Simulated assay, not measured.
Amino acid sequence: MSEQSTMTGPPVGPSGASSGGAGLSPRQRRNISRGVQYAVFVVLAALVVSWADWAAIREHFLDMKVAENLFPEIFTIALKNTVIYTVSGYVLGFFLGLVVALMRLSSAAPNRWIALVYIEVFRGLPAVLVFILLGLAVPTAFPGIRFPFDEYGVVAIALGLVSAAYMAETIRAGLQAVPRGQMEAARSLGMSYSRAMITVVIPQALRIVIPPLTNELILLFKDSSLVFAIGVTSATSELTKFGQDIATEYADSTPLLLAGATYLLITIPLSIVVRRLEARQAKAR
């Protein structure tokens, strides 16, 4: 009797699927799934294009005669004010958030309680309500209080108070991510706790949380549109208020579309920076 064994059925390939074509390899299934997704996307895009009223879109959203009235003020006034509001609020929020984060990690219980209350209050309140309270309620309740730089000061403080609550938790997470050995090594070299925290721990923590802090800058850039709540003038209006005023004047939505596109000129590059920072950190790890 021959020792060669007999096999029944079609031969099996290295992937485990039958070479007779009855089964599909994982790569083939992925390709089919991807092709179906592309086909669905193309069909949906074609439906949107075919259903859209392009004449109405050109009339109400792409009116070049109305768009001409936005320049150059959309850059020299609206965008400039938006950047000023965002940067000033972010700087204030960053330093206040750093202080609150350190208070959250303090060994003194009152410091932790104050920081926790601050974070919960300003994360829980809508940002527009903070604007209204600072711009309208505080001057009414305390007539002697005047904010520096008028509307610019109010917006910077309002954005700073709100963003600090979020950045405090981000920075706290970064501080806790720094290995304890860093602080112990610094103290063993004779550094005080404060000096070790400032020169050793905080710089490492900030490098860790750069991507989320940059995301906060993007969110703050958009939150600057809430300046309408305190009633700014035409000279201190930001992009959304500027576009809304022109849109109301001409009964056309083209200014709002251009204001949105101007936001994207800032937010898209920032988003690209965030992704590259995240990728660099992931590669470093």
Rank of each mutant, 00 (worst) to 15 (best):
R195S: 13
V128H: 08
W113P: 02
L136Q: 07
L129M: 15
A284V: 01
Q37F: 15
E151F: 12
L98F: 11
S237M: 08
A173S: 09
G97A: 08
V87Q: 03
F221L: 15
G135Q: 09
V138I: 14
Q204M: 05
F94M: 00
L105Q: 12
Y193N: 12
A115M: 06
G124I: 09
L175C: 04
G93E: 04
W113Q: 09
T199C: 08
S234Q: 13
V40C: 09
T76F: 12
A251P: 03
A173M: 04
T236A: 10
E3F: 13
Q4D: 12
S18L: 11
L116P: 04
R280V: 01
Q37W: 14
V117I: 13
Q37H: 12
T233N: 08
V43G: 02
A101N: 03
D150V: 15
W51G: 12
Y152L: 01
G35T: 13
V209Y: 03
S33W: 12
V154N: 07
L44K: 05
A235Q: 14
G93F: 08
A52I: 05
T199S: 12
G153R: 05
E249M: 13
P26S: 14
G231I: 11
R172K: 07
L96R: 13
V87T: 04
R180C: 06
G124D: 00
